[in-house]
């Protein structure tokens, strides 16, 4: 019989879910804002489209990671914490386009990541 440390807090899950929900429109905003900024800077249409898609896909990946790793908060707190940090960084990159939803998502993912690491752990026999 092996023992394993598990988390006890629901906070990473809640932060992951709410964060990813807000990150989805954040991803759309990021794509649209990136296109707007690129257009204003006088970039070519294909370049603008490519930048917009990149930011949107980054935002969507951040939302998916935030959701999935948030759910893992109890099962593997360290993995969940690292995953939520990656989601925070990816959402943070989309913040370059100044969108409000990504800002909220970054804060929520970060809170989730911190709680994943510092939450009270319990030893269970597997």
């Amino acid at each position: 019989m092996a023992t394993k440390k598990r988390g006890t807090s629901n906070v990473p899950m809640i932060m992951g879910i709410i964060g990813s929900i807000l990150q989805l429109p954040g991803a759309i905003c990021a794509g649209a804002c990136a296109a707007g900024i690129g257009g204003a800077a006088g970039a070519s249409q294909s370049s603008v489209n490519e930048t917009a898609s990149t930011y949107m896909i980054l935002g969507i990946i951040a939302a998916l990671l935030g959701f999935i790793f948030g759910l893992m908060g109890k099962k593997s707190p360290v993995v969940a914490g690292v995953g939520l940090l990656i989601a925070t960084v990816l959402s943070g990159i989309t913040l370059i386009t100044f969108n409000f939803f990504s800002l909220i998502a970054v804060i929520l993912f970060l809170i989730g990541a911190i709680f994943s690491f510092v939450q009270k752990k319990e030893e269970v026999t597997v």
Binding site: M13, I14, I17, I18, I21, L22
Partner: peptide, 30 residues
């Protein structure tokens, strides 16, 4: 995104209800 937000809230509430209902099942907590 009010629809998405309420859906997320719904998912969390459903999970808590599920956790409550899982008390009826004899299985490990893990």
């Amino acid at each position: 995104p009010i629809f998405n937000f309420i859906t997320g809230v719904g998912f969390i509430f459903s999970y808590f209800l599920l956790n409550h209902n899982f008390k009826n099942i004899i299985d490990s907590k893990v």
